[in-house]
Amino acid sequence: MTEPRERISDNQIAFMMVLFEIGSTPLFFLGSKAKQDAWLAMLIAAGFGLLLVYLYIAIQRKEPDRHLIGILRTYFGRLLGSVLGAAYILYFGYESMRNVRDFGELMSQTLLTETPLAVTMLIVVLIAAYGILKGAEVVFRLSEFLLPILMISYGILILFLFITDIVHFRLLLPMMENGPGPVLKAAFPDIVSFPFGQTIVFLMFWHLCGENGIPVKATVRAYVSVALFLIFMNALNIAVLGPTLAGISALPFLQSVQLISVANVFERLDVFVTLLIYIGLFMKMIVFYLCAVIGLSQWAAKARNRFVLPVGIVIFAASFLEPNYTYHISFGFNVSLKLFTIFQIVIPAALWIVMLLSKGKPAVRIQ
């Protein structure tokens, strides 16, 4: 079917790349198994993630007018391509569901402590559904408004951490005390999958770019910038709390912010962290939600708006499947991240090989 004609600018792609990759990542201590070398694990994972970005760009360049679901059906045929497309729709929906649950749980812990979890999650899903009904252009315009707020908030918090004099980078030493093994184990596949492998979502949007095609430079610059920021934030959590305390803390960055005290005036800056939770998780959730809707629309050859509310209802209902937040986090890091590499690495690599073997002539051309 023919999708509504939408256009996304180069800046919007770059801003969304930064906003999407940041998400809730700085709030957590990724690579904790590597202890003080967790930032090195993130550095290695970011390098591998950059290779994935180039792989995704190469795939899109072969089919500049199609998104991922259409490309799969084009090169793998109607049957296998449809099966893989359906799997990606479920993947996008599941990722959105995880962010809905994260949003509800973290808001309950930090700001809306008396508000029922279901109410918080229902509101965020309804807001996202409204945005998606307005189209991808509106969703991507949000990034231009929200990214400056996000970066200013992080900047203020980081500045106050240094002013309070609780940042001690000596806690990052010794480097690779137990060799490179723990660093590599922390990087692969967990940090590669979250957050860097999640850039697979842009294969659903690059075809909406202008006449100049994929904004490769803007995309790569945005990725490198946000990767360096995330590496720094991981190191900052260690430098403030130490590797042991950061590793056992549910929200190490929040705990770090709670230590800020400047002239007995600037204290209790948790509201900034709450703002970061809202912006990061909401934007990540709405992008995955939009991908699921776009994918289902292509897969079923029906108008996109038909699926906005049904997909939202499924995402909201599925967010209650996990009995508690501890199980939610444990399942996500111990199971989901391993499985997600199939969607982020294995299938895209296989797709690229098929595209190369086809020499630009796909086996089955499906409009």
Rank of each mutant, 00 (worst) to 15 (best):
L236W: 01
M283L: 14
S249H: 05
I214S: 06
A300Q: 10
T219S: 15
W299T: 07
V224L: 14
V308Y: 03
N305R: 13
F307K: 01
I315S: 02
L228I: 13
P180I: 14
A292C: 11
V293E: 01
F196W: 14
A246Q: 07
A246W: 03
Q198H: 01
F288N: 12
Y289E: 11
W206R: 04
G210S: 12
R221K: 13
F202Y: 14
V271M: 10
F205D: 06
G280S: 09
I315R: 10
A239P: 09
N305D: 14
G242S: 12
D190T: 13
I286L: 10
C291P: 09
Q198C: 00
I313N: 01
M204L: 12
I294D: 03
E211G: 02
V183Y: 07
L254P: 08
E177K: 14
G280R: 08
H207N: 14
L269W: 09
G197R: 04
I315P: 07
D270M: 03
I231E: 01
L228Y: 08
V308Q: 02
S261R: 13
N212F: 02
M285C: 13
C209R: 04
S297Y: 05
A250L: 15
G213V: 06
R304K: 15
M204E: 04
L275K: 09
L276D: 03
L276Q: 06
L309Y: 04
G197T: 04
P310A: 05
G181F: 07
F266C: 02
P310M: 07
I286G: 03
A263I: 08
A186T: 12
F202H: 05
I279M: 08
I191K: 09
P195M: 01
Y278D: 09
F229M: 08
V224N: 01
G197A: 05
V257T: 05
I279A: 08
V308H: 02
I315M: 11
C209W: 05
F288I: 04
V216E: 14
S225C: 12
L184I: 15
L203A: 08
Y289A: 07
S193L: 01
V293W: 06
K284C: 12
F288E: 03
G213W: 03
V201P: 00
I277V: 15
F266S: 02
V311K: 00
K284F: 06
A246M: 03
N212T: 07
L269K: 04
V226D: 05
P182W: 10
